[in-house]
Simulated scan of single mutants.
Amino acid sequence: MSSYTSEYPADDEFDPAYKAFFESFYETSDTPDAHERYSKQFTQDATLIMASKKVQGREEILSLRKGMWEKVNKRKHTAVKVFPFGPSSNEVMLYGIVEYVLKDGREASVDWAARANLVKEDGTVMMNFYQVYLDTAAQTPSK
C-alpha cells in the first residue's frame, strides 16, 4: 500500500484509475524536481486555483508549480479522504494535510480541501480542473 493511499466512501464505485491517479499526483506533488511531470498531469487547457492564485493551461501551471518550491525544501501531502460526487463520478472533493519543511529549517502543517474534475485523454487520467482551499496564514510557520 502506498503512503499516498486515501480513504473513500464504503459504497464507492470510484474508478480505480482515478484512485491510482491521485496516489501518483500527490507523490509527484511532493517530488521537488518533478515540475514537468506535475504539469503533464493536467489537460492542456486545465484550470488550477491554489488559494488565491488562478492559472490556466499547462505553461502557467508549470510556472506556478516552480514558484511553490522556491522556499520549500520538503513537502508531504496526505489526501486523507476523497469524496466522489456519486457513483462512477469524475468529480471529487478531497480533504488532506500537507506538511512542509522550509529551506530555512522551519516546519508547518496545513489542512486543505480541494475540488477536482478528472478526464481520460487517450486512456490517461488527467485533471482539467483543480481548486485547493487552504488557510494561507497557516502556511507561514512561526519562528
Rank of each mutant, 00 (worst) to 15 (best):
Y133V: 14
V101Q: 15
A138Q: 13
P141L: 12
F21W: 02
T28W: 00
F42G: 01
E7S: 14
D15E: 03
T31L: 06
F83M: 14
T136S: 04
Q131G: 06
V110W: 02
E27C: 09
L118C: 02
A137G: 12
D111E: 13
S6G: 04
F85V: 14
V80S: 14
E121F: 02
S3W: 12
K54L: 07
F129S: 14
A116G: 10
F14C: 12
A138V: 08
A34K: 02
R65W: 01
A34V: 01
E7A: 14
A10N: 12
I49L: 02
K81D: 03
P87H: 05
T136E: 02
E99G: 11
S39H: 05
M50I: 10
K66D: 01
E99S: 15
V92M: 03
D111H: 13
D30Q: 09
V110R: 09
V72M: 05
T43H: 00
T43S: 01
K76D: 09
H35C: 06
L64M: 13
F85L: 15
N73A: 15
K54T: 15
D45S: 04
A34P: 03
S89M: 05
S142P: 11
A10H: 12
M126E: 12
T136H: 05
D122T: 10
K53N: 13
M127Q: 01
E27S: 10
V55S: 00
E7Y: 14
I61E: 00
G123N: 10
K74I: 11
K19W: 00
S109C: 13
L134V: 01
W112D: 00
T43M: 00
P9Y: 00
G57Q: 05
K40V: 09
D104A: 09
V119Q: 06
N128C: 03
A79Q: 11
Q44I: 09
Q139N: 10
W69D: 05
G57F: 00
D104C: 09
D15Q: 04
T47R: 14
D12H: 08
A113T: 10
Y8A: 02
M93K: 13
T78V: 15
G57T: 08
E99P: 09
S2G: 03
M1I: 13
P16V: 06
I49M: 04
V55I: 05
R58C: 02
T31F: 01
E13M: 10
S63I: 05
D122R: 15
V119Y: 07
Y38W: 06
